[in-house]
Structure formats: structure tokens, C-alpha cells
């Protein structure tokens, strides 16, 4: 009986895994095919990978785009996690009526579609450009500044803090740690799975962000990966082999971040015992 259930579970997970992984594999296969074969949905690998890669390197500045996207994503991830967790912790641990009200107001900011605030935001950066050109329009800083402080992560960290054993805070106070010390030395290490999840999401969001970088970054030397891919698909006769090559390259960093972070999701890992 128990064995049958096990088999059923494996069957279920395997189906889900195959369904999930299939498009990814197809992408990798398509990377080695000619454009015409990609559009026909050819499922077997071809011999055109080197050709596609050469075309990609010749026609685009993918190196610069990767570096820009990487820089923006790393800075965004680190700052987002820091600012978001500080606030999420602050709202939950130092809970008060006033703060709860502010929290609810902040949550509202998640709810309006970005397209609606984009033009006022662009105007704001236009004005910032006049006084501080280094964070104004067409700078990498402008691309990440509005994305590092988000209600999403504040909300996320607050909800997770609800499950954090608050006795630890009192214990820290008794040990004579400062409030900030408690946060950095107790909360942060205890919540590392939460941070790992947040890091994956923040990196991914930033890496794939399209609309805002599109309008705010105009010069080619500031191009990011999603903009580059969008350009590749824009001609009258797009080369899908090259596009797939670019997409696979673009997907690897996020997949890598996931691989690195996911070890924190292993239940009862030695880390928490040894630590």
C-alpha cells in the first residue's frame, strides 16, 4: 500500500517535471537548428549551433548587455533584500497601530499596473537628470532605483517574520545586543531560507525586467538582455535559431542563481545543526 503510494507520487512528480522541463529542452535543441527548422518545431538537434552563436556575436553586443543586466540584477538583489527585510522585520517586530496603517498603504503601491505610473515616473527621472545626471535618464542607476524598494518584498519578509520565533529577539536583548545587532546576528542567519527565496525572486525579476529599462535606457551601451532579445525578434525575417541561442544564454544566469540558492531549501540540512 505504502509502496503504491510512493510510485504514484513519483509518477506525479515525473509528469510535472517533464511538462515543466520540455520547453527548456526544446530551447536548447532549437539553439542548434536553422531558423526554418525552429519554426517547424523540429525536435532533434541540428548542426548549426556554432553558426547561430557566431551570428549572435557578430550582430549584437551581447557581452555588454549581459554585463549590464548582471550589474543591475546583483545590485538590485542585494539592496532589495536588505531594505525589504529591514522593513518587513520592522513592521512585524515593532508592531504598532500607526505602522500597521502605513503598511497597508504601502501595500497599495503593488496594485497599480506599472504602465500607469510609468510616464509620471519617467518625468520624475527627467527632472532628476537636471540636478543629478549620474542617476538620471539613460543611466543604469535609473534602471534599478525604482525597483529596489518594493512593497512586495516588505510584505514577503513581514509574512515570514510572523513565523519567526520571537523569543529569540528577547533572548538577544537579554544578551545585550543592540536592536540592529539582533536583526543582523539573529534574524538574518535564522531566516536564510527566506533570504534565499527572496534572492531568487529578486534576481529573476530584475533580470527579466523589460518595460522600465526599455524606456529609461536609450543608448546601446546601456542595453540589457531582454531589450536585446526583443530587438532580435523584431525584423521582417527574424532568425529563430539565433534568438534561441540568445535566450538560452539569457536563461542560464537565473537558472544558476536558483541552483546556488536552492540548497537552502533542504529540510534539516546540517547547516542549522552545525552552524
Amino acid at each position: 500500500m505504502k509502496k503504491i503510494k510512493r510510485i504514484f507520487i513519483y509518477l506525479f512528480l515525473s509528469t510535472a517535471a517533464i511538462v515543466s522541463i520540455f520547453p527548456f529542452l526544446w530551447m536548447i535543441v532549437s539553439m542548434t537548428n536553422k531558423s526554418v527548422d525552429v519554426t517547424r518545431g523540429k525536435l532533434t538537434p541540428g548542426m548549426h549551433f556554432i553558426e547561430n552563436l557566431n551570428n549572435l556575436l557578430e550582430t549584437t553586443q551581447i557581452g555588454i548587455a549581459l554585463w549590464n543586466s548582471f550589474l543591475i540584477a546583483v545590485i538590485t538583489t542585494v539592496l532589495t533584500l536588505l531594505i525589504g527585510s529591514l522593513a518587513g522585520y520592522g513592521f512585524e517586530i515593532y508592531r504598532s497601530k500607526g505602522k500597521d496603517m502605513i503598511f497597508n498603504i504601502l501595500i497599495l503601491s503593488m496594485m497599480i499596473p506599472f504602465a500607469a505610473i510609468m510616464i509620471p515616473l519617467y518625468r520624475l527621472f527627467g527632472r532628476i537628470s537636471a540636478d543629478a545626471p549620474f542617476i538620471g535618464l539613460d543611466t543604469l542607476a535609473a534602471a534599478f532605483l525604482p525597483t529596489i524598494i518594493t512593497a512586495f518584498f516588505i510584505f514577503f519578509f513581514r509574512q515570514n517574520t510572523k513565523m519567526f520565533a520571537k523569543e529569540l529577539v528577547e533572548a538577544g536583548r537579554i544578551d545585550g545586543l543592540s536592536e540592529l545587532g539582533i536583526f543582523f546576528r539573529i534574524y538574518l542567519p535564522t531566516m536564510k531560507t527566506t533570504y534565499a527565496a527572496a534572492a531568487i525572486i529578486a534576481f529573476m525579476n530584475s533580470w527579466n525586467n523589460y518595460l522600465w529599462p526599455l524606456v529609461v535606457l536609450q543608448s546601446p551601451e546601456n542595453q540589457t538582455i531582454p531589450l536585446l532579445i526583443s530587438n532580435l525578434g523584431a525584423g521582417y525575417t527574424p532568425d529563430y535559431g539565433v534568438i534561441m541561442t540568445a535566450i538560452v544564454i539569457a536563461t542560464l544566469p537565473t537558472a544558476l542563481v536558483f541552483f546556488l540558492m536552492q540548497r537552502h531549501f533542504v529540510a534539516g540540512m546540517m547547516g542549522s545543526v552545525k552552524g
Binding site: L71, I75, V78, P133, F134, T139, L140, A141
Partner: peptide, 15 residues
Amino acid sequence: AIVLAACSGGDDGSG
């Protein structure tokens, strides 16, 4: 990362 951020800000400024 913060140092990087500062540097990149500077670079962009000059650009």
C-alpha cells in the same frame, strides 16, 4: 555590491 553600485553610478555620470 554597494561599492559596485557607486562605481557604476560614477561611470554612467561620465558617459
